[in-house]
Simulated scan of single mutants.
Amino acid sequence: MPDDHSADASRWSVRPRTAAPAQDAPTAAQSLRDELVKIERRIEDVICQGREAFTEGSDSYDRATVAVLRLAALFEDPSRHHAPHLTVVTLGERRGIVATRNIASHSGCGAMNTEIFWRTVTERLPEVIARIRAASES
């Protein structure tokens, strides 16, 4: 009988890619634009639902959290999304986005100041996304 631990070890070991990316795969710039659209849709939903609906545990709050998580993920591996397009986001803004993501994912949303989170998602992030979009389209 095979050792269960050895089976798990090989299952979770890091392996090189076995095939080249598909020729019809989107470019890094297109992937970035697609991701920005997904983030913007979430932010638009949050704004449409309004401040009154924006409470911890609500659909609106959850959409805002996912928008921040996805935006922060862009900075984790900038090579995936054309790093030059992301340089339009200041170091302070990046730190703020990552800190917000860390609070949401590690401390729980209950640790988040709802008013600051609302203003960040509805006022600051749309402007940051607009700058990234403009850089990726130029």
Rank of each mutant, 00 (worst) to 15 (best):
T55K: 13
T55Y: 06
T55Q: 14
T55N: 10
E56N: 13
E56A: 12
E56V: 13
E56K: 14
G57K: 08
G57H: 08
G57S: 09
S58H: 05
S58K: 04
D59L: 09
D59W: 07
D59R: 11
D59G: 11
S60R: 01
S60W: 01
S60E: 03
S60L: 00
S60I: 00
Y61C: 00
Y61N: 02
D62W: 04
D62L: 09
D62N: 10
D62E: 12
R63P: 00
T65S: 15
T65W: 05
V66R: 09
V66Y: 09
A67H: 05
A67G: 01
A67M: 02
V68K: 03
L69K: 08
L69I: 11
L69S: 10
L69E: 13
L69Q: 08
R70C: 02
R70F: 04
R70T: 04
A72C: 00
A73H: 14
A73G: 12
L74D: 07
L74Y: 05
L74Q: 06
L74V: 00
F75G: 02
F75D: 06
F75W: 08
F75M: 03
F75I: 01
E76L: 02
E76I: 01
E76K: 10
D77M: 05
D77C: 02
D77F: 08
D77E: 14
P78Y: 10
P78A: 08
P78K: 13
S79A: 14
S79F: 06
R80Y: 08
R80L: 10
H81A: 07
H81C: 05
H81W: 13
H81N: 11
H82T: 13
H82D: 15
H82F: 08
H82N: 15
A83T: 09
A83Q: 15
A83S: 15
P84A: 10
P84Q: 10
H85G: 03
H85M: 03
H85N: 13
H85T: 08
L86S: 07
L86C: 03
L86V: 05
T87S: 14
T87K: 14
T87Q: 14
T87N: 13
V88Y: 04
V88A: 10
V89N: 11
T90W: 06
T90V: 02
T90D: 10
T90L: 04
L91V: 12
L91Y: 10
L91D: 15
L91G: 12
G92C: 05
E93T: 02
R94M: 07
R95W: 08
R95V: 06
R95N: 12
G96L: 10
G96E: 15
G96K: 13
G96C: 06
G96Q: 15
G96D: 14
